[in-house]
Design a protein around this nucleic acid. Structure first.
Lengths: 202, 202
DNA sequence: CAACTATGTGAACGGTGTCCACATCGTGGT
DNA sequence: ACCACGATGTGGACACCGTTCACATAGTTG
């Protein structure tokens, strides 16, 4: 116990260290860059050591994805928190979309880890990005001539919004629009967001 | 020249064969399942033989993606051709979206090859799916109170639609909605499509 | 028929994920 | 205080992968 407090066994919490390095690798070279051997190498540890903390490579990648998903949520939350709390719900929903998109633009490789992700099942319900979006969409009903209130309709509306934002994010990072200049990308996001939000009204 | 006509050299057009097998592999196990050695093995050929036709593995995958993109285009075109040619443009646009989505659902792994695709640059302009979509969106302006006519606005509208359809497709195949039952997925598609199309009107 | 080029082969290199027998180290039971 | 035990890390092996190179073969062209 020489450095901070909990460096329990040999190396001190290897697992966290490997996830941290995994995120680093993913941020540099995308999902296929996060390999067990390379991660272990950068952690100054034998390749086999990884198997004390992860059943296999997929498990490491999954942990990296989880971290990335958290960062995405923070980006959304930050963007939402920057509009006035009593601003029209429309503004808040659009802000959430901007936060999503900005994360995709600024951390492209990390976002690709999420986009190519098989497993992101639980989402810890509480401050899951989707849960927050559901809440914001619920706020939309209080607005002028907006969506209905029952849970199903609210879910459907959230999916429609999520699809639009995720779609433009993917197209602008790994898709057909990835070579478009950034300012134009932001324009396209605004158009897509406006279209989706407008489409929710009758 | 014993079988059909053009089996020029040793094996007879290996390249096409490898692409065919590559598509097969991709359809079974996604993009990471299409490997040079496995493809060569199934073609009954040495691994090195592949390098006479492809500079590397990425090139093979790119060829597979090109084939998949063609199939996607056909799916869209087929869906569009099933609505009356003089049907409202809205119906045609929605049909195109359904064709896109159905391809994603029915050929999930193949679609993932496209979604995770880096390079799809040219698209042969003529019957590129996006070009066709642009055309259909152009038709929207003739409808009731629809979008404006200038090229930029038409492009923006097409991007907004594309984003929504691509987004729901990704979410339903490799994303958070992949475990939703199929009929519900189609419902969600309809909601998303309706929202996007409705959003294009003022 | 000879030379040439296109195509396919076999063996090798470095890299990977995964597993196994063994080493080491903190800790809890007596 | 000791000692056995479980948690953690090591080194070496295995099979596989993508890639390259020197070599073999087979159509084509003069």
């Amino acid at each position: 116990m020489n450095t901070v407090n909990t460096k329990p066994y040999h190396h001190g919490n290897l697992r966290e260290e490997m996830v941290r390095i995994g995120v680093e690798l993913a941020a540099e070279g995308g999902p296929e860059a996060v390999g067990l051997r390379e991660t272990a190498r950068r952690a100054g540890v034998s390749p086999s050591a990884a198997y004390r903390h992860f059943p296999g490579q997929d498990s490491l990648l999954e942990a990296v994805r989880h971290t990335a998903a958290d960062a995405l949520g923070q980006s959304m939350q930050h963007a939402v928190s920057e509009v006035a709390a009593d601003a029209p719900a429309t503004e808040q929903v659009i802000a959430a979309g901007r936060g999503y998109f900005e994360f995709a633009l600024n951390r492209q490789m990390l976002f690709r880890c999420l986009a190519s992700g098989f497993e992101l099942p639980e989402e810890d319900s509480r401050d899951s990005p989707f849960a927050r979006l559901l809440e914001l969409v619920g706020g939309l009903k209080r607005e002028a001539s907006a969506v209905v209130d029952d849970h199903a309709a609210r879910f459907d509306a959230a999916v429609a919004l999520w699809s639009a934002v995720h779609g433009i994010s993917v197209l602008c990072t790994s898709g057909a629009l990835r070579d478009v200049p950034q300012p134009r990308k932001r324009e396209l996001l605004e158009v897509t967001l406006a279209t989706a939000v407008r489409g929710l009204r009758f």
